Simulated scan of single mutants.
Amino acid sequence: MVLATELGSSQPESSFDLSTYLVKRKEAIEVALDSALPVIYPEKIYEAMRYSLLAGGKRLRPILCLASCELAGGTADMAIPTACALEMIHTMSLIHDDLPAMDNDDYRRGKLTNHKVYGDDIAILAGDGLLTYAFEFIATKTENVPPQQVLQTIAYLGRAAGAGGLIGGQVVDVESEGKTDVSLETLNYIHAHKTGALLEACVVCGAILAGASAADLQRLSRFAQNIGLAFQIVDDILDITATQEELGKTAGKDVKAGKVTFPSLWGIEESRRQASQLVADAKAQLAVFGSKALPLLAIADFITSRSN
């Protein structure tokens, strides 16, 4: 288990440094993920799971979980198992999204995709393994949290990852591919579920673990919904404007796949404006928390300024 002291502590507003905060949080999460998944028999499946889980990335989702738990009065130690589980589920979604039956992508985070290294069969099973292990990990490794809050976290995450969340969004995304008449309503549904549901779970589950009130959970939920949509809009923009080297994955794949995106409906400049407005609306939800919300506020700004 990673100690809270290793994760650093919240800084006062005058000295808050997002870069330092993200580096410290990411380092601690990498250590926790590495120790969470040792290689045992049968080695191939654990190696495949670790290949994608430990492939790097910004680790924004687990960092959001830790930040929201601390905002709500909890500690990093309370949230580390759930933060790791969220990254496991996110990694599952990337492995499966890259498969030939889905987006058929060769690169992810600058490395060959899981199925390119281990084959389609092991890649599917690696994703399945990460998904199921995520819930086991929360249930068995969470400490100093009332059982009811652990149960609530598992249920919330199960909904976010299932047919009513991430998987449902993926289904509508697949069904919409190649269609030219996809409405803004449908596009919003896809991304509110495929991307937004898990990101919302990151924020809300951290606060649930800390025992946040229903009113605070609602504020954090609205915050997360807005930054989740902003995150996807920026992703759509980067797919057009960034290179494969910058993205760490194939660039321009949305256009090649015939997908309707926010820039294809609005244009790039309006898409940027919409993303900025969503972030502003998100940040307004956290005004009541004062300086305790600084990490989440800074991450919200980071979402629209990132280059990968």
Score class of each variant (00 low, 15 high):
residue 104 N to A: 09
residue 28 A to S: 01
residue 274 Q to T: 14
residue 147 P to M: 02
residue 5 T to E: 15
residue 120 D to K: 10
residue 61 R to G: 00
residue 291 S to G: 01
residue 110 G to Y: 01
residue 174 V to I: 09
residue 258 G to K: 00
residue 24 K to W: 14
residue 157 L to F: 06
residue 205 C to K: 06
residue 66 L to I: 02
residue 308 N to P: 14
residue 13 E to T: 03
residue 138 I to V: 09
residue 75 T to S: 11
residue 259 K to V: 10
residue 34 D to S: 13
residue 205 C to R: 07
residue 202 C to Q: 08
residue 234 V to L: 08
residue 17 D to I: 01
residue 89 I to R: 00
residue 200 E to V: 13
residue 257 A to D: 13
residue 53 L to G: 02
residue 294 L to H: 05
residue 266 W to L: 13
residue 164 G to T: 04
residue 47 E to N: 13
residue 299 I to H: 11
residue 19 S to H: 15
residue 250 T to A: 10
residue 211 G to L: 01
residue 23 V to G: 07
residue 37 L to G: 08
residue 105 D to S: 12
residue 255 V to I: 10
residue 95 I to R: 00
residue 284 A to I: 04
residue 138 I to L: 03
residue 111 K to S: 11
residue 20 T to A: 14
residue 119 G to F: 03
residue 231 F to S: 06
residue 209 L to H: 11
residue 145 V to P: 02
residue 190 I to R: 02
residue 104 N to V: 12
residue 84 C to L: 06
residue 79 A to I: 06
residue 37 L to Y: 02
residue 8 G to S: 08
residue 108 R to K: 00
residue 173 D to F: 01
residue 64 L to D: 05
residue 144 N to L: 00
residue 53 L to V: 05
residue 229 L to Y: 05
residue 223 F to R: 04
residue 292 K to W: 02
residue 142 T to C: 07
residue 158 G to P: 11
residue 17 D to E: 13
residue 258 G to L: 03
residue 106 D to H: 11
residue 132 T to G: 13
residue 167 I to D: 08
residue 256 K to G: 06
residue 290 G to N: 00
residue 100 P to Q: 09
residue 166 L to K: 10
residue 155 A to R: 13
residue 305 S to L: 09
residue 118 Y to M: 09
